Computed example of a mutant assay.
Amino acid sequence: MFVRKLTLALALAVTGAGIAAAQSPTRIQQFNAWGAYSYQSGKSKVCYVLSVPKEKTPASVDHGDVFFLVSQRPGQNISYEPQVMVGYPLQENSKVTVTIDQKNFTLFTKGNSAWVENAAEEPALVTAMKSGKSLKVAAKSRKGTATSYTYSLSGISAALKQIESCK
């Protein structure tokens, strides 16, 4: 089941990144709640870490497949780019809030994904993930439903270390 979700996540990430052709991902290693993966996209390699939420609210709605990932795309000069992916369309022009311990980060939305609004804050978000205890995502569906997801940060530092030399 996790492999199916991973394949879906990769397909969505590939679509979101505008990459035309990619091969199936290879799982490098699992680090508690976070897995490290890679795949070949054209002549360059893409590496990422991914986790699924341990809690989803409200429990009464179908969230679909939900992921938080951080990707490295050296061929595009992209390093440690955080992304939220959900299994439903997000409300247009809405913001997603990522809270790590007491620190908030604002993400912009497009389709079913969200990225850090101010790219200069990406390193701060990744640093907060490495030292934080939990990560919470608050979003709003296209239908206006407020949703939230809680992730464990156990294993994130080791998973990120695993992909730091992605080339």
Rank of each mutant, 00 (worst) to 15 (best):
T57W: 08
N112Y: 08
E81F: 10
G18Q: 04
A9H: 02
A9G: 03
K54W: 11
M1C: 13
P25I: 01
F2S: 15
F108H: 11
E117R: 07
T150C: 02
R4W: 14
E122A: 12
L10Q: 09
S60F: 03
S113Y: 09
Q40V: 07
R27N: 15
N118F: 13
S71D: 10
K161L: 13
Q76G: 07
S154T: 10
F2D: 15
A120E: 13
M85A: 04
V84Y: 04
S94P: 00
S134L: 07
Y48E: 05
G64M: 01
L10G: 05
R4E: 15
L90Q: 00
N118R: 12
E122W: 07
D62H: 09
F105N: 00
I19T: 10
K136F: 07
A36K: 05
A33L: 05
K56I: 00
I28W: 10
T97M: 09
S134C: 03
L12N: 13
L50F: 06
V61Y: 04
T109W: 01
S131R: 07
G64N: 00
V70H: 05
Q102R: 08
S131N: 09
A36I: 04
S165I: 08
V61F: 04
V137G: 00
Y151H: 04
Q72M: 13
S134H: 06
A59L: 08
S165H: 14
S131Y: 10
K56M: 04
T109Y: 01
K143C: 08
N32E: 15
V98Q: 04
V49D: 02
H63D: 01
G144F: 06
P89Y: 06
N118Y: 13
A21E: 15
L12A: 13
Q83V: 10
K43A: 15
T147W: 02
G42S: 03
K5N: 14
S79R: 14
M129V: 06
Q30I: 10
V14L: 03
S44Y: 14
A21P: 07
T99G: 03
A21F: 12
T97H: 11
I19L: 11
G132Q: 08
T7K: 13
V84D: 01
A128E: 06
Q29R: 14
Q162Y: 05
R27Q: 15
L50D: 06
P58D: 02
F68G: 00
N93C: 03
E121G: 03
I100E: 09
V70I: 12
P123S: 04
K110L: 06
M85P: 00
P89G: 08
Q102A: 12
Q72W: 12
S60C: 00
L90K: 00
A124D: 11
A22G: 10
V46R: 04
A146P: 05
G16Y: 05
V96E: 00
L125R: 03
K140V: 09
N118W: 08
S154C: 03
E55F: 11
K167N: 15
K140F: 02
K133W: 07
T26S: 13
E121K: 09
M1Y: 14
L153I: 02
F105K: 00
S154K: 08
L153G: 03
S157Q: 12
S152A: 09
V52F: 12
G132S: 06
